[in-house]
Amino acid sequence: MNFSLVKNVLKYASGFCYRTKNVTSMCASSVITKGFHTTPSNSDLMEFFDIKKNWNETNIRVGRAWKLDELRIKSNVDLHKLWYILLKERNMLYTMEHECYEKVRLFPNPERIDKVQESMNNIETVIRERNIAYYKLETGETGERPVEDVVNMFGLPEKYKKQEYHIPQFMNSRWVRPYLEHGYINSLAVKKFYRLYKEKQYNETRRARNRNFNHVQHLLKRFPNMDLEKLKAEYPDVDIEKAKHTKKARGHFLPKY
């Protein structure tokens, strides 16, 4: 591969969505015959690379990612095709990034990866929304993987993602939560850990409180005509009246009182 990408990264994006040549026209050239094939052109390994025209480019300007509201008006088939287009684009970008790294070149516009990823995340969100709506209507449940609030081995609250088994829990003698069954949560070690953990958390909040108080004092010193309501809104936990009368907030002049 002899593409020469010069050092210059400029960023481009806009009101046009990045990646998908014409989702709907692809619907027309349908998919029923031979699985789905989103690219009209023939495919070989070179599809992992960008088109040859872009190899020497230093700046490949593209539009922005697909937004949720734009994806919500698309049919499932369109979303399915768009997903694979984006997936191929992402593969291509990762390949090009790696190739540039190998050739010690600058990868042009690395934010394209983020844009594609954001679009893909949005597609997943939209599909999940649709499926949840279906399952809620049909079964009254979300159809998502169930999550349970449990206390974990360290005595801390945790979201436990349930797993699927072919036999019920009471028959499954191999499935145990050892720390629950054996009462570790009430053990001395866990209690000690929990106490120290709480102490650490308390210290963090205390430091944050002191830091904010000090910061407010300095702000009052530097900006004596400051809007105190905005200050209160930004630092709701700080006693501003108290901070006003401290030595640090006074500044280098004699007080009038």
Partner: peptide, 11 residues
Amino acid sequence: NKEKDTAASEV
């Protein structure tokens, strides 16, 4: 960008 972008009418 003709190769990469989706046209606004399609979106």
